[in-house]
Design a protein around this nucleic acid. Structure first.
Ligand SMILES: [Zn+2]
Ligand SMILES: [Zn+2]
Ligand SMILES: [Zn+2]
Ligand SMILES: [Zn+2]
Lengths: 129, 129
DNA sequence: CAATGAAACGATAATGGATTTCATTGCTGT
DNA sequence: ACAGCAATGAAATCCATTATCGTTTCATTG
């Protein structure tokens, strides 16, 4: 794991997570998606791609990435999905219909309530009624 | 199941759901909570109370109540929770910390996004930081 | 009041996502 | 090279939810 200070490697390093080939693969898998994805999906894609990473390791990696704040997690149809988000502090608008996630930087307070995740319908999907 | 046109009985009738003793018990269990509760919790409480309602029936009842729009469902810690809500069209502010649910009637649109459920931190819990 | 059939019930089994266990493997520093 | 510790992954387990399927309830009909 020495040499090439790749984007993912730097990310892990800064988060205090030791770099391993499996973790790089998981990050790589995550990075290919704009929409949040499940651990199982990441695992399946890596497998298709010929990479052998245990499902357990995928779960563990995603959990520690989430704990470090590098990825954010949501719940969709009863399962946990993960998304590689930007570094700026933000909250989320998540479309229940198409899965789109919008990162929102502006503080959003309604009735003293601090919003963290807003589930609803995006403008596009609302038009498609 | 004849006679007494109770609050729950009327509710079921209006929703086109046949009234049964089990369904009344489930509604009664729900009605005792302001915070959303899980099917298992309802079932456990009914059991403690000496009532014998099958867990399957509790699940089925809650599902049909939700389909009829009488109860709204949320996800907390990986499980589905149910809440008897008011009749007015509304969306929800749900505190991740204390579970409080605020019914919001005002239309809330941010960037063309129609909010349905807003998860975050309520004013009280935000103060307790 | 007995017969009938549809709907509801509920014990049990099955499902499926997520976590735990534990033996093995691979770094890391001496 | 070696000890110590972290990481891995197959298998076992957990746990909420759903599916199965035989039984029960209940409104209707004759
Ligand atoms: Zn995010
Ligand atoms: Zn959408
Ligand atoms: Zn509601
Ligand atoms: Zn709160």
């Amino acid at each position: 794991m020495t040499g090439a200070p790749t984007r993912w490697g730097r990310m892990l390093e800064e988060a205090g997570i030791r770099t391993t080939s499996q973790r790089l693969l998981v990050l790589d898998g995550l990075g290919r998606h704009r929409l949040p994805v499940s651990a199982q999906q990441i695992h399946a894609e890596l497998h298709e791609q010929g990479e052998r990473v245990g499902l357990t390791t995928v779960y563990r990696t995603l959990t520690s990435l989430a704990a470090a704040g590098l990825v954010h997690t949501f719940t969709q149809a009863g399962e946990i999905v993960y998304r590689l988000c930007g570094p700026a502090k933000h909250h989320h608008l998540i479309c229940r219909s198409c899965g789109l996630v919008i990162e929102r930087v502006e503080e959003e307070a309604m009735a003293g309530f601090r919003a963290e995740e807003v589930y609803g319908t995006c403008a596009t999907c609302a038009g498609t009624s």
